[in-house]
Amino acid sequence: MDFEPSDEPVALKILIAGGFGVGKTTLVGAISEIRPLRTEEVLSDRGIGIDDTDGVEGKTTTTVAMDFGRITIREGLVVYLFGTPGQERFWFMWDELSYGALGAVVLADTRRLTDCFPSIDYFEQRGTPFIVAVNCFDDADQYDIEEVRSALDLDPDVPVLMCDVRRRASAKTVLITLVEHSLRVLTASQA
């Protein structure tokens, strides 16, 4: 094919991770056009007593609604946001979601900081660029960024910022911080 690279449509994938109630859905909704998207959770191992009359060998699935947002930068350049449920039963989704991802936003709530440990461990291991965005809930004690960084034992180059993802401007800053970080990681890997 004779295309300039710029003629090929480019789609980028950003993951929004963190525990339940931390603000993933709010963030996706504040910044993007939310779209319905379902994936399957296969429950075949769990012996759920639903009978199989259709001849399909004992496979029962639940569909799980995912946070899915789309930001069109220009024609042919789209950023997709995927919210990734943080608990273990959804981990089957993580590998496919993180494959080829530009990066991840790990949302943290200082009242339950440990909720984001699995996400941080996961992205560190996969080598997926990530940032930590501390969602400032009204009734939470205020911590400074360095306190959060050391509590999470983050590498010094991982950006940490405070946010209120109910506000579009704040959600925007979070995404820009991530893409700038991903750009630094990409540039460093090519140097």
Binding site: K13, F20, E40, V42, G55, K59, T60, T63, P85
Partner: peptide
Amino acid sequence: EEAGPVVRPYALIGGRTRSSGDALDLVAM
């Protein structure tokens, strides 16, 4: 809130899970 109803989408595709679409990236074009 996150879990949907139990359904059988696999009936649509005859009970198979994946074919060559195996490693398909969600944002592949």
